[in-house]
């Protein structure tokens, strides 16, 4: 029987990502990793990571924080690497050399997923490998020192698109990787946030029970890059959900379902003001920019609501 997703039962499970890793204090990535591995606690898993914060901080010289088999190959190829591991698993199963039911999970940052690893991810998903790809999205290249990525929000200040006199932070829109993965026609795609941990873990649980390629994008605050307080990761995750900056939803066999609908949608300004990377938006004369961001978020949220309505299974008897 599957381990129920409640604190009482989960607290009895082994933590498969140990303390002693060298991620920054206040980083949400290890929280996300622990949640993902706990949700998968009923199975042996093999994890692959792309080069990035999580990778450089979790396996250094003769130490490893991973109590599961783990492989790091390069920056842009975690999905291809794991597709090789999973193919070998199928090959050895076919030859009767292995009989265990093993799950395969990639855990990679947004640089390794949205940008440099995008092709590898798209290819592995298209080929239909039985794996779950988790992107921990902290919205920039944090490991190399907060450079902008395809996941960086509009107007955010980073070291390669610093908020200057002429250019006010990142001028472009962020890439919507979750929708792009849904457009691959995968059996399961979702967006999650560590603030809503039962929702996150249910999504992981659901994903690993589905055979084939799955993708979950998880919001992962970075206090160093976002210039926020060390203990704000969960608060910021919650604000991202409640402002609809990061809607929690899933797309299962083409049916979109918003899993958490904020009772009162909060204004984006609340999310922005807690982060130094948006500080320049609060200077006099920049009010329009915050309005612009609010409009973008409203538009995306409306679109998602419509998508949910459009794809929801209709009751045929009521036609």
């Amino acid at each position: 029987m599957a381990t129920p997703i409640n604190l009482k039962e989960l607290s009895k499970q082994e933590v498969r990502f140990t303390a002693g890793h060298r991620l920054c204090a206040g980083c949400a990535a290890p929280i996300v990793v622990k949640m993902v591995l706990l949700a998968a606690c009923d199975y042996p898993v093999v994890v692959a990571s792309s080069t990035g914060c999580l990778e450089v901080s979790s396996c250094i010289s003769t130490y490893t924080a991973w109590k599961v088999p783990w492989i790091h190959n390069a920056f842009e190829n975690a999905a291809a690497t794991l597709s090789g591991v999973e193919s070998m698993y199928r090959a050895l199963k076919k030859r009767g050399k292995i009989d265990k039911d093993i799950k395969f999970i990639a855990i990679c940052g947004d640089g390794g997923s949205y940008d440099i690893g995008f092709q590898s991810l798209s290819g592995a998903m298209e080929r239909g490998h039985d794996m779950l790809y988790v992107c921990y999205d902290n919205g920039a290249y944090m490991n190399t020192g907060i450079q902008r990525s395809g996941a960086t929000p509009t107007f955010a200040d980073t070291t390669t698109c610093p908020a200057g006199v002429v250019i006010p932070g990142k001028p472009q829109q962020r890439k919507d990787l979750t929708r792009i993965m849904a457009a691959h026609g995968l059996p399961y795609v979702a967006q999650a946030s560590p603030s809503h941990w039962p929702d996150l873990m249910k999504k992981v649980r659901k994903a690993i029970e589905i055979s084939g390629p799955k993708f979950i994008n998880i919001f992962t605050p970075c206090n160093r890059g976002w210039r926020s307080r060390t203990d704000d990761a969960i608060m910021l995750s919650r604000l991202a959900v409640e402002t609809c900056f990061w809607p929690l939803y899933e797309v299962e066999e083409g049916i979109t379902r918003i899993t958490v609908k904020p009772r009162d949608k909060r204004p984006i300004v609340e999310f922005l003001k807690a982060q130094g990377r948006f500080k320049h938006l609060f200077e006099p004369g920049k009010e329009k920019m915050i309005e612009q961001l609010q409009e973008m978020i409203d538009k995306n949220w409306e679109r998602l609501l419509k998508e949910e309505e459009m794809t929801s299974p209709k009751d045929e008897g009521n036609e």
Binding site: V46, A48, I71, N73, A74, E76, N77, A80, T81, L82, S83, G84, V85, E86, S87, M88, Y89, R90, A91, L92, K94, R95, Q119, S120, S122, G123, A124, E126, R127
Partner: peptide
Amino acid sequence: RTEMILVESEHSALSACVGAAAAGG
């Protein structure tokens, strides 16, 4: 009985081989 991985680039071909070889075959 070989499992073929028909990848989307040579970069991924060798990356997949690294994963498969580390897996143990």
